[in-house]
Design a protein around this nucleic acid. Structure first.
Lengths: 193, 193
DNA sequence: GCCGCTCGTGTCACTCGGTGTCAAGACGCT
DNA sequence: AGCGTCTTGACACCGAGTGACACGAGCGGC
């Protein structure tokens, strides 16, 4: 029950934060505002989130592990381009499923330098994870072979490009179609050898 | 003459900052410390640099334009993989030329999340610039074609991987050799079609 | 019933990054 | 000397983030 309440407060906080940040802009909203809007104190906010950026970015935090677990679940004989495409497709599907909310968050992140920076940091971690998974999958040594890191980077780069285009078109363009087009571009490098 | 003095103060500031940050760690150094070490006030520090991260990251700020101008200078008939490889090679050559200093800065950036985030933000801007240059070079429409952004991303991704490996090996591995190996991996995608 | 226990929260005080304001000097010009 | 301009330092201020502590709610043992 204590866990229930914790989740409740957390949701209240993210809800208030997303609402305020999206309308007034990142810098124009203080943490006090968010906290009072959620009915708690500023101190309590920081017991749930490490920073102002965290409220927004933690909203996408699960994507990294989603990508990696999906890659781990793909059949081993599948070519890297296909496996990575499906792995990266998971968070994109989540985006399209909750497009109203996801679009607002993505737009906010891309428009706000501080958020964008944090987001890129997350992505860098995802890339390392993906590279490790990929190296294990292909039996490569990540210490000597550049391929795993480059491949993971290419996949996430494609993911990023699609996200930009998707939010740039206000959700009009289809992420699935975009990611397919992106992967036809990078596939020759992913599947070489 | 006034310009001389400005440059002098700026150098003093970056020197003090790099020294202190590299030894004590990013969070353990206050701006007051850096400023007093350079013989100026905290307020003056912020007249030269926008933020604490800026002192370190602005050290690499020129790289972005270097890459783009080099790409613009490459012969138009050169294949994208070769042109991008040379473009990205420019800042890497600068790194090897001042390896003692560059290595310290790169290590500091990669080790400090806040700095890493800012660095990635810069890179994202470079990528957009590179993509625009590449689109112009190939006569593609960056609004509809994904290739420019993906290609620019791949090149910078390779640059990033090399930088990591270089700093990870304490400068032992040769950046030129690494970037060549990285580009043989991604070239099939860059030169397809 | 009451006593203690823990745990979540609010309050307060504090540090530090970052900004606006202003007055005091340094410099060039006439 | 007297006058703009430009840089600087001093000061006050805001907001992010942290540490310390006291309060109250819930809960098990007596």
């Amino acid at each position: 029950m204590a866990e229930r309440k914790r989740q409740l407060v957390s949701n209240e906080l993210t809800e208030a934060a997303l609402q305020l940040l999206a309308t007034k802009g990142f810098d124009a909203v203080t943490i006090d505002e968010i906290a009072t809007a959620a009915g708690v104190s500023k101190r309590t906010f920081f017991r749930y989130f490490a920073s102002k950026e965290d409220v927004v970015v933690q909203f996408l935090a699960g994507m990294g592990v989603d990508i990696r677990t999906e890659l781990a679940a793909r059949p081993p004989e599948e070519r890297p381009s296909a496996a990575l495409r499906y792995a990266v497709g998971v968070p994109l599907a989540t985006c399209t499923a909750h497009s109203e909310r996801a679009l607002r968050v993505v737009r906010l992140i891309l428009r706000t330098p501080a958020l964008h920076a944090r987001f890129l940091e997350h992505q860098a971690r995802w890339r390392d994870d993906l590279a490790a998974e990929l190296a294990g999958r292909l039996g490569l040594d990540p210490g000597s072979d550049l391929y795993p890191r480059l491949a993971a980077g290419m996949a996430l780069n494609a993911f990023d490009a699609v996200l930009h285009r998707w939010s740039g078109s206000d959700g009009a363009e289809d992420p699935t179609g975009l990611i397919d087009r992106a992967f036809t571009v990078i596939a020759p490098a992913l599947d070489a050898a």
